[in-house]
């Protein structure tokens, strides 16, 4: 057999073999793998390259080596799923670098991290002042994660004591003018519903680039034609405003009537409506 055919054949078969092998080894981000995992990837790559250009003449031996470097990481990963002890042995443990705002110099020495490198990592996590850091840890992948002091953390609605409505993730139902059936059906809707919605808004499906349905079931559209101004869904705001006007009406009736019982009923209802609006506010306005 001619050499070039041999190389072509082995290269093509290795191409697909390695594709499968790397897929089987997991979909973890290459930046966030442990150093040892990185080494095994390199070894697989080198063996693959050598076999592909026929530097390893005995293909069987090459496959044995390749098999070991593909299967062992998978086996180790499986074992470390089962046992914490093996997991720590293989991946190492995270190292606490800053505790209660104080740098642990021993840990720095252990991880061979200089003060400059630590400061750089902290800055990349938006902690420019060491005084803002409560806790920092180096993960087994070498990443440094930072927990800021409570008064420097971003304010959440919980901190402010404001109730917010729970939100589910929006589902994309139109992409590039095509209706995506699966997300639409998972929401319990169908194409007819969508075409009625598009008709009410007054756009054709060909003009829609992306259409998303938010957790309250409202449709948000982005059109190819950016000159068209779309009415944004404001139904919930309108609903709240309608409740407000009804509440004002009831208060007015209570003031105007001379009938004692009716006055009582109107003001009670107005009060009921006020409480209702208070309850609905997070869901309708935020």
């Amino acid at each position: 057999m001619q050499t070039w055919i041999q190389i072509l054949m082995s290269s093509v078969s290795l191409f697909f073999l390695l594709l499968v092998a790397i897929r089987v080894m997991g979909k973890r981000n290459i930046v966030r793998i442990t150093p040892f995992r990185f080494v095994s990837y390199i070894i697989i790559a080198v063996i693959g390259a050598l076999m592909s250009v026929n530097m390893i003449t005995n293909l069987a031996l090459g496959f044995v080596a390749l098999g070991v470097w593909v299967l062992f990481p998978i086996a180790l990963e499986y074992l470390s799923l089962k046992s914490k002890w093996i997991h720590d042995l293989v991946n190492g443990k995270e190292t606490v670098l800053i505790k209660h705002g104080k740098i642990m110099e021993d840990s720095l020495l252990q991880t061979r991290l200089t003060a400059e490198e630590l400061m750089r990592e902290l800055r990349s996590k938006n902690a420019f002042s060491l005084a803002d850091v409560e806790f920092a840890v180096m993960e087994d992948t070498g990443d440094i994660n930072v927990f800021m002091k409570a008064h420097k953390s971003p304010v959440s609605s919980y901190d402010l004591g404001i109730k917010v409505a729970p939100l589910a993730e929006p589902q994309t139902v139109i992409l590039d003018g095509n209706i995506l059936n699966e997300p639409l059906f998972s929401l319990g809707l169908n194409r007819d519903w969508l075409s009625i919605q598009l008709e009410t808004i007054g756009v054709s499906i060909d003009n829609v680039f992306i259409g998303q349905i938010d957790s309250s079931g409202d449709l948000y559209l982005d059109l190819f034609d950016d000159a068209v101004q779309l009415p944004q869904p404001k139904v919930k705001e309108l609903l709240y405003a309608n409740f407000e006007s009804s509440q004002a009406d009831l208060t007015m009736f209570a003031l105007e009537t001379n009938n004692k019982a009716a006055k009582q009923m109107y003001s009670e209802d107005a009060e009921k409506l006020t409480q209702l609006m208070e309850k609905l506010k997070p869901y309708l306005l935020r």
Binding site: A168, S215, S216, G217, L239, N242, S246, D249, F253
Partner: peptide, 24 residues
């Protein structure tokens, strides 16, 4: 006022049907 409140009820019922969050 009754008509406004009935309209509100209709809108609320629509949102109660189409929202995906049980709490809401």
């Amino acid at each position: 006022t009754i008509a406004t409140l009935k309209g509100n009820q209709a809108t609320l019922r629509l949102y109660a049907l189409q929202t995906r969050e049980e709490e809401t």
